[in-house]
Nucleic acid binder design. Structure first.
Lengths: 193, 193
DNA sequence: ATCTATCCTGAACCTTGGTTCATCTTGATG
DNA sequence: CATCAAGATGAACCAAGGTTCAGGATAGAT
């Protein structure tokens, strides 16, 4: 078998530029940014885009994959902190708050993913994330802080519908409204207009 | 001032056909249905569409307006029932369940509305709806069943993001997860998977 | 220094989908 | 029944945006 020659240096450099530029453009101007705009932002010609990502769908999928990886990293970091003695329920809600805030950034990304039907084929990272969250839930449940019914699926269900185009205050309020469904404790005051 | 002649009979008929066809097509095949497809479904030529609705945005806005009106009617009916002695909190959650189910039908409609930036200019019906809901909330609060913090804005916040592409079971679970944030009572068993 | 496979460029292509308009049809009025 | 303005038709128009490709540049190996 012929060991394919290593990719050229500038090719690697360009791939990175494209990926970051695509992320920025999509989050700023929504999923409907043109390929030409992304190319311009990356300082590259359209053809180069298509050399690295044969179709727009593929490009978006790649961007989404990066987001998933970021979240998975966060989740695992949290899990480590809990293993070191932090209170699981608190860490979980804090984590979820962060996810909501991130989902503002990624809202366009998510939307783009759905619109283009970009299967996140990145099962590896996705599983890393949900495994960590599952562990987090179990920990909170054995502490008695999280309701025994709650599953990872519930988290998905709720947070796949987190408000994105609202104000930060609205997002905080949303989190406060949703939390009581997950926890057993007294509901936090979290009041606002 | 010249009293404009009454619209022709077939024009009225066509307008109805277009509106219903548009509703069906959009809910079935998503917001991205072509104007030609809608026209075909209505048994009408494209030009006729544009005679009644100068732009796609306008057409979608009209469809949305009908949905809003439907929900508003429901809300007012519920309010009447409560005035007749029904328990406010129960009626409210039942109503919200219905809204979620409807939002499955209207998901595409909503999406289309956002996508096209269709301002729902139909403030009249919208206000009818939120006034009724507000009254419902107040009633539930004086019963002690609904948490004193809760406002109409909260309802919007939650239900504008209700899950739509999930299964009926998932939607029920979602409702069960969200309800504790609104009510004061013990959380309903609502367990699943 | 030379050579070539890899990579880049960007104008042109092509499909998709909203919108228009000249022409024909038809419901209502006298 | 005659008349005509309101309404309907649908082929054609046009812009937008994803995609291609022939030709030019360059990193890296010899």
């Amino acid at each position: 078998m012929t060991q394919a020659r290593a990719p050229r240096a500038d090719a690697v450099r360009n791939r990175r530029k494209i990926l970051t530029a695509a992320g920025e453009q999509i989050t700023q101007h929504g999923p409907e940014v043109g390929m030409d705009e992304i190319a311009a932002a990356a300082g590259v010609a359209v053809g180069t885009l298509y050399r690295h990502f044969p179709t727009k769908t593929d490009l978006v999928a790649a961007v989404v994959a990066e987001c998933v990886a970021r979240v998975a990293d966060d989740a695992e970091a949290v899990l480590a902190r809990v293993a070191a003695g932090a209170r699981a329920a608190d860490e979980l809600t804090a984590f979820l708050g962060r996810v909501v805030e991130q989902s503002v950034t990624d809202r366009a990304v998510k939307a783009a993913a759905q619109t283009l039907g970009a299967e996140p084929g990145d099962h590896a990272n996705e599983d890393r994330g949900s495994n960590a969250v599952a562990a987090l839930i179990r920990a909170g449940q054995s502490d008695g802080d999280i309701h025994p019914d709650v599953t990872v699926g519930d988290i998905y269900l709720l947070f796949s519908t987190a408000p994105t185009d609202q104000s930060p205050a609205a997002r905080a309020r949303w989190l406060a409204l949703v939390t009581p469904g997950l926890t057993t404790g007294a509901r936090p005051a979290g009041n606002r207009r």
